[in-house]
Design a protein around this nucleic acid. Sequence first.
DNA 1: GCTTAAAGTTTTAGACTTGAAGTTTTTCCG
DNA 2: CGGAAAAACTTCAAGTCTAAAACTTTAAGC
Lengths: 161, 161
Amino acid sequence: MTDPAKPDATRSSLSKRRLKTWIRLLGVTRRAENHLREFLRVNHDTTLPRFDVMAALWRRRDGMTMTELSRALLVSNGNATAVVDRLEKDGLARRTPSVSDRRTIHVALTDEGLRQFEGLAADHEREVDALFAGLSDADLESLSDILRRALEKRETERDSG
Amino acid sequence: MTDPAKPDATRSSLSKRRLKTWIRLLGVTRRAENHLREFLRVNHDTTLPRFDVMAALWRRRDGMTMTELSRALLVSNGNATAVVDRLEKDGLARRTPSVSDRRTIHVALTDEGLRQFEGLAADHEREVDALFAGLSDADLESLSDILRRALEKRETERDSG
DNA sequence: GCTTAAAGTTTTAGACTTGAAGTTTTTCCG
DNA sequence: CGGAAAAACTTCAAGTCTAAAACTTTAAGC
């Protein structure tokens, strides 16, 4: 358990540093999310979850199942159902029963949904650009690298666990 | 508008890279949050918002006002009220009217709240440590630096805006 | 055909979250 | 002093979110 080569202070400081870094990561993410939520509400009268769903559907233009959607967004399936319900009610998304597997339902943006999202996405990208304007090209490269490594580690764990 | 020194592709790729990095940041954060939520639920029968509130109250042992609490957590004041309501109902937090200002209310952990949080915090730190075990000391340093810069940029904006 | 399992969706109950509106108290300023 | 404005907090309505249970459809085994 104890390692003479590494005094207690060193070991504990690494763990504490991981915790501190995580808390900072969380803080930056929440601030950015809050900013974007406000932006979407004020300028486009929509919400972050709606935007996320529309973005996922836009990326998969030919439609995706509810389960694929909830997995892509890292949210529960019941949650996805509710958001899609509201989008459908507003004429922005459409559900189509699958012909090959009568259990599944394909969701896709309507023409109006596509049109609306494209305007939204351009503004959103500008906003994110401004939000992270303080980060240089090198910063972005480095940040992406580190985050990718953090992600990979976890997926390896999931595979073997 | 156009800058001959920087071709369109270059300018747009920087904006796109910021967007991609933000999406990755969001993904990593959500994955970690989901993991920690599950951990708290299964091992300690509690939730992330409760943990966050307790952590804030633990850091400020002598108590803090509801407004300080909601600002520290980056959530709305109505939200803070609801979470503290539940903690109070469970005997983990206590509200005390301020004597100097009858509008404000001081919130603090009870003895039981303190005791419970200390167990929680130790486990939570271990979990975060494992979650980010893939990140080296240098990674953490670099990540912290970059995030601090992203944060500073935004606060400067808020001051001058 | 019948049972069981698998894949997917929906429902339910409860917690969380926000923004806005409302109450009480304090501060500011004439 | 007295009224307006601001601040702290709560309450409310609507939406978001999760986990777990219920339900539907399909597939597999007997």
